Amino acid sequence: MRNIEWWWTAVSAIGAYLYLHLICRILGRKVLSQFNFFDFASAITIGALTTEVAIPTNEWKRAAVALGIFTALTLTLDYFIQKSPGLRSFVNSKPKMVIYKGQIDSQQLRKARLTLDELLTILRQKNVFHPGDVYCAILETDGQLSVLPKSDKMPLTLGDLNRKPPEKGMMNDVIKDGNIITENLRHAGYDDKWLQKKLREQGIQSIEEVFYAGVDGQGALYVSTRDRAGIESGNIYIQ
């Protein structure tokens, strides 16, 4: 009898896993950092209902139905949020400008339930140590703070000097774990002889020594070898 119960538990867990996977595919993907409070609460509720389905109790059928209804409601709400700006503002709230032209807006801080110390901490994490250096700071709906420094506090770029550097383009992975990815190498416009030559220029005699290698749009080859002794014994080792 117990063996049957264990098998039924395993089947229920697998079914709940597949059910959850299907729901996640239906709801779509969203980065965790983009979650607002409602998204976070919905994810917790879906997880709790899935647990009820995974464990075979007398209520698992009701939990499965509730999970389906919750998914349908989430999809319906997402649809109307996309169609209605007013509903979107109500559900997700609006971004709040907490700093404008170097002045902190205490009223917006209170509306966002953000303390002054929390604001200053976030600014320091963005390498801003003086609120007066900020032209505007906007608290986004996902809780992230977007900061635009004043023009005289921005770092100088080549664009400011009317110079345009060559584009490096995307990195093409040409070696992973000691194996050459021939298709990517050909796509980048190079062959094995070119790769071997570039590796020898960096003192690497064997492909097997390479953990990862990639080439950018300018033909520059980045190589990371398997040997980590220098890192582990050096000052940059982190416990």
Rank of each mutant, 00 (worst) to 15 (best):
L185S: 01
L145R: 00
A43H: 06
P95Q: 03
Q108T: 06
T45M: 13
I46H: 07
V11E: 05
A66L: 06
E52K: 07
I175K: 00
G234C: 12
V128C: 06
S151V: 15
Y19E: 04
A43E: 10
M1Y: 05
T115G: 14
Q108L: 07
N235S: 15
K83G: 08
L27H: 05
K94F: 12
E167L: 15
D39C: 07
Q82D: 08
A16Y: 00
Y79C: 13
S84L: 04
L67I: 05
T121R: 08
D117K: 13
Q196I: 05
K83A: 10
G102Y: 00
T57P: 02
K150W: 01
G68E: 04
A41M: 10
F80T: 13
D117W: 10
K61G: 12
A188M: 01
S12A: 15
K150Q: 06
T182S: 10
D177Y: 12
V11F: 07
D191L: 09
G219T: 11
S12W: 04
L156Y: 11
N184I: 01
E183V: 08
H130N: 15
L87S: 08
L116Q: 13
Y212R: 05
S224F: 11
E5L: 13
Y212L: 08
S12L: 05
I26T: 04
V128M: 08
I4W: 13
K83C: 09
I138H: 00
D142Q: 02
A213C: 12
D216T: 15
Y237H: 06
R25D: 05
Y222S: 12
F38I: 11
R110A: 08
L221K: 06
A43S: 14
L75S: 09
T225D: 05
G203N: 08
K164S: 15
L148Y: 11
V128K: 02
R186E: 14
K150G: 03
I238D: 02
R163L: 14
H130V: 06
L67V: 04
Y135R: 05
Q107E: 13
I122F: 03
S233A: 14
D78H: 06
I138Y: 01
N3W: 09
A13D: 07
I14Y: 09
R228E: 10
F38T: 07
S84T: 06
R62S: 11
A10N: 12
F35K: 00
S42L: 02
L139G: 01
Q108F: 05
L139D: 02
P95T: 03
